[in-house]
Computed example of a mutant assay.
Amino acid sequence: MLIVGLTGSIGMGKTTTAAMFRARGVPVHDADRAVHELYAGDAVASVESAFPGVAVDGRIDRERLAAQVVGKPEALRRLEAIVHPLVREAEIRFAASAARRGAALAVLDIPLLFETGAADRMAAVIVVTADPATQRDRVLRRAGMSAERFEAMLARQVPDAEKRRRAHFVVDTGRGFAAAERQVDAILRALRFLV
């Protein structure tokens, strides 16, 4: 089974692009969703131990956690040391399940794919992009998002131009939904030659 990584900076349209792959029958593992599940399950005790007061009713309260982590590189590294191995385990279970079901291709949707070194484990990498104005507009429309928070998130990520340079395939979502779908279909045609 071919395992392909899907990534892109915040606001680039990665979630929508992942849904396009799912709609075409490709199994997709969502790292963000895995973290949400971990914050309600396997990671709660470890995260609460490292960051006292962030667990509420048996779940990690993301706002409380953000207050202890955002803008604090050492705290962020401690959190990532807890969460990233658990997400990796979830990816392994997902890939094994997809292979048992006979999938020829699976996509791992990993927001920090390059930042965490996960690109080295992929047969190919797809980067989702859009022009900076579109990205900024999308992100600042999100509830609770500020320009400062957006800039802080961008500062943690490999720049979009570098991601595109390192990608095997690029999906530009700034040209509309139909154009992005055509790009996804072209990628799937190209990947069929690899499986």
Results as ranks from 00 to 15, higher is better:
162 E>R: 15
139 V>S: 07
78 R>D: 10
100 R>I: 02
25 G>L: 04
49 S>C: 14
63 E>H: 15
113 L>N: 01
53 G>I: 15
55 A>T: 03
52 P>G: 03
37 E>K: 05
51 F>D: 06
160 D>I: 09
134 T>G: 06
6 L>R: 10
7 T>V: 04
6 L>E: 07
165 R>W: 02
15 T>Y: 06
48 E>I: 06
38 L>N: 04
152 A>P: 01
194 L>D: 08
65 L>G: 01
107 V>Q: 03
182 R>Q: 15
100 R>A: 13
107 V>S: 04
25 G>T: 03
62 R>C: 09
164 R>S: 00
14 K>R: 10
3 I>G: 00
59 R>T: 11
114 F>C: 09
76 L>S: 00
33 R>H: 12
60 I>R: 05
48 E>W: 03
116 T>I: 10
126 I>F: 02
148 E>C: 07
141 R>Y: 15
45 A>M: 14
99 A>L: 10
57 D>Y: 04
73 P>R: 14
50 A>Y: 09
96 A>Y: 07
97 S>I: 01
23 A>V: 04
88 R>I: 09
5 G>E: 11
195 V>H: 15
59 R>C: 09
19 A>D: 13
176 G>V: 02
100 R>M: 10
6 L>Y: 11
164 R>E: 10
8 G>C: 04
161 A>D: 13
140 L>Y: 01
138 R>Y: 08
13 G>R: 08
39 Y>N: 00
186 A>D: 10
46 S>C: 14
87 V>T: 00
132 P>T: 05
180 A>Y: 11
104 A>C: 15
17 T>G: 04
